[in-house]
C-alpha cells in the first residue's frame, strides 16, 4: 500500500494557499505535516481526503485516486465536532453505519474503545436508584472527553489510512499519554497515519518522515533523521565557571540563548566548536558542560519559519531522505 501526493495546489482567487506539495508514504508509519498557523495544513488534509476540490495535483492510494468513500479512512479533524444534543451512543452508531460497519461489529468496537479510552461512565451510565440511566449527550462531556469520543469515531471503522489533525491539542498530560499509546498501537498495527501537530516532541517521538509548510509552500521535507544530519551538529550547549563572552565574540559565534544554565550556541561546523573549546581551556576556565548536537525539530521549525518571514525569500527547500521536494 502507498499514498502518493503529487503537486497538490489550492488557490483562493489569485492567492495560492497550498502550492505544489508532493510527498509519498510507501510504508506504514506516521507522516508529519507541520507548519505555522495558516500554513495550509488543514487545507492540504482536506484535499488529500477529497473533501475539498484541488486546483492542481493528484492524490493516489495504491495507484488509484483516493476517494474516502471507496477506502477506509479515519479522520480526527482539527475543529472537533459532535452533535451536542444527541446521545453519544446514537452518534457513534451513526458514524459506524456511515462507514459501513455492521451493527454487531460497531457495538463490539465501541465497547473496546470505551474501555480503552476510559469512557464507560458516559457510554454506559449506571441507573440512579430505580430510575433507568439516561443516555449521556456530548454537551455533558468535558473537552478532553469529547476529544476521546472523536478519536473513537475516527477509529471505529478500523481504517487503513488515518489522518489526525492536531490530535493532542488541549489534552491534559494523562489523556495526552492515552492518545500517544493509541498512536503507538496504530504504528504496531502497520497503519498509515498522517499527523499534523504543533508539538514537535510528539512528532519526533512518532514520525520518520515530515514536511514543513510555510505559507502553503513546502520548506523542509524528508526523513527526519536525515534532515537533522544534513544540518550537522551545529548546536553547542556550554556551561563554564567563568565569563566566555570574549571567546564567543572572537570566533563570531551566534548566541541562540544565554541563561544561568549556560549558553546555547550555533556554530558553522565542528572546527569552530573545537576552537572555542580550545580557547576556553587555554584561558584556564573550567568547563562544566560542552555538548555538540544536531538541532531539534523544534529548532529547525522555528528557524525556518522565522527566517522565511524575515527574508521573505520564498520557498527554500532542504531535501533529505527519499521524499520529493
Amino acid at each position: 500500500m502507498s499514498l502518493e501526493v503529487r503537486n497538490l495546489t489550492k488557490r483562493y482567487g489569485k492567492k495560492e494557499v497550498v502550492s505544489h506539495i508532493s510527498f509519498t508514504m510507501d510504508k506504514p508509519g506516521v507522516f508529519a505535516l507541520l507548519g505555522t498557523n495558516g500554513a495550509g495544513k488543514t487545507t492540504s488534509i482536506r484535499m488529500i481526503l477529497g473533501m475539498l476540490a484541488k486546483d492542481e495535483g493528484e492524490v493516489t492510494w495504491n495507484g488509484k485516486p483516493l476517494d474516502p468513500l471507496e477506502i477506509n479512512v479515519g479522520y480526527l479533524a482539527e475543529e472537533r465536532g459532535l452533535y451536542p444534543k444527541y446521545a453519544l451512543m446514537d452518534q457513534m452508531m451513526y458514524f459506524a453505519k456511515l462507514k459501513n460497519v455492521d451493527t454487531e461489529t460497531a457495538k463490539k468496537r465501541i465497547a473496546y474503545w470505551v474501555k480503552h479510552l476510559e469512557l464507560q461512565e458516559y457510554f454506559y451510565p449506571k441507573p440512579v436508584g430505580k430510575r433507568p440511566a439516561k443516555p449521556m449527550k456530548a454537551e455533558q462531556l468535558s473537552k478532553g472527553n469529547q476529544q476521546k469520543v472523536q478519536l473513537m469515531a475516527a477509529l471505529i471503522s478500523d481504517p487503513e489510512l488515518i489522518v489526525l489533525d492536531e490530535p493532542l491539542s488541549g489534552l491534559d498530560p494523562v489523556n495526552s499519554d492515552l492518545f500517544k499509546e493509541v498512536i503507538r498501537n496504530l504504528i504496531k498495527q502497520n497503519k498509515y497515519v498522517i499527523m499534523s501537530s504543533h508539538q514537535m516532541e510528539v512528532i519526533e517521538e512518532f514520525c520518520e518522515d515530515i514536511i514543513i509548510l510555510h505559507h502553503g509552500n513546502s520548506v523542509v521535507q524528508g526523513n527526519l533523521n536525515e534532515i537533522k544530519k544534513s544540518y550537522g551538529r551545529v548546536n553547542v550547549s556550554v556551561k563554564c565557571e567563568g565569563d566566555i563572552d570574549k571567546y564567543i565574540e572572537e570566533l563570531g559565534i551566534k548566541v541562540m540563548e544565554k541563561t544561568p544554565e549556560g549558553y546555547l550556541l550555533k556554530v558553522t561546523g565542528d572546527e569552530m566548536a573545537e576552537n572555542l573549546l580550545k580557547n576556553i581551556m587555554s584561558a584556564g576556565i573550567r568547563v562544566v558542560r560542552f555538548e555538540m548536537r544536531e538541532p531539534s525539530l523544534h529548532e529547525i521549525f522555528v528557524e525556518k519559519a522565522t527566517s522565511l518571514d524575515v527574508d521573505n525569500t520564498g520557498a527554500e527547500a532542504v531535501s533529505g531522505g527519499n521524499n520529493e521536494e
Binding site: 481526503l49 479515519g74 479522520y75
Partner: peptide, 15 residues
Amino acid sequence: QEKASKVVEYLMTSV
C-alpha cells in the same frame, strides 16, 4: 447545527 458543531467535517469523510 452540523456546521456550528463542526461535526460536518467528520461526516465529509463518509458521505
